[in-house]
């Protein structure tokens, strides 16, 4: 999936620059966005997903220019799967309704088709027995698996994952990352914002490093981790690896 953005920047209402003007073009299959907190990673992902509009610049995904207004942005969101940190499931709906409702209302599935697709995904992720539970009755790992099932249910052209494991215990983190790796093997293109450096290095082909709103490095994951070119990336990786066993 070709992703390209030119002169992309984002400034919030308090005039704080979250993203400084940046350019990028790359064929993304499994891309990890890494960097210190507050560096603009989630903002970049939300712009790609059409959830917020950039202050300036243009974005192309798969050769199509993303328009951030009206029906065009709604059409764009339909083609993207999005997984949030935690709490992205609709709290008043059961796990299965979280998947079925958008399939019927947004993607035009019939009830039977939507139910069959939801059953297929819940079964695959080991959640069939939890299908009728509300999110609050599911563990963090189960919630994220349902969120991933919902995000991929309509076969999106690109999956965006915003720190999907940062609120999870280590055992649930492994479980969720395992699923994302499986999806990669099925050739589902994704961009993941993550603090799991092991996953970024070994499961993602490319890594993009963002710090203080600037796109500082992009390249093959091995190169990024073995030969960081900027001081900021070296310092960031150094801090993360300080307590590695």
């Amino acid at each position: 999936m070709e992703i390209e953005f030119r002169s992309l920047s984002k400034q919030f209402e308090d005039h704080k620059d979250v993203l400084l003007p940046m350019d990028f073009a790359g064929d993304v299959h499994a891309l990890a966005v890494i960097g210190p907190s507050g560096g603009g990673k989630s903002t970049l992902l939300r712009i790609l997903g059409g959830l917020i509009a950039p202050t300036a610049g243009q974005v192309w995904i798969g050769g199509e220019k993303v328009c951030y207004e009206g029906a065009a942005v709604e059409a764009h969101r339909k083609k993207i799967g999005y997984v949030f940190q935690l709490g992205g499931l609709f709290k008043h709906m059961s796990a299965i309704d979280n998947i079925v409702t958008p399939l019927i209302r947004v993607h035009g599935f019939s009830k039977e088709q939507a139910r069959a697709r939801a059953d297929e995904l819940l079964g695959r992720f080991g959640l069939l027995t939890e299908a009728n539970k509300k999110p609050a009755a599911l563990s963090g790992g189960q919630q994220q698996r349902v969120a991933i099932a919902r995000a991929i249910s309509a076969k999106p052209k690109l999956l965006l994952l915003d720190e999907p494991t940062s609120a999870l215990d280590p055992e649930y983190t492994t479980e969720v990352l395992g699923i994302i790796r499986e999806l990669k093997e099925e050739r589902l293109d994704f961009v993941i914002v993550t603090h799991e450096m092991g996953f970024a290095r070994h499961a993602c082909e490319k890594v993009l490093f963002l710090a203080e709103g600037q796109l500082l490095e992009y390249g093959d994951s091995d190169t990024i981790f073995q030969q960081p070119a900027t001081y900021k990336l070296r310092s960031f990786l150094g801090k993360l690896l300080e307590w590695n066993i």
Partner: peptide, 26 residues
């Protein structure tokens, strides 16, 4: 929560669908 509204956008709900399927039931 704002996160629920953002999730509604992310799944592709229109403004009206967000009110109908997320805001009103909650």
């Amino acid at each position: 929560e704002a996160a629920q509204i953002e999730a509604a956008k992310a799944v592709g709900f229109t403004g009206r669908q967000t009110v109908r399927y997320v805001v009103l039931p909650q």
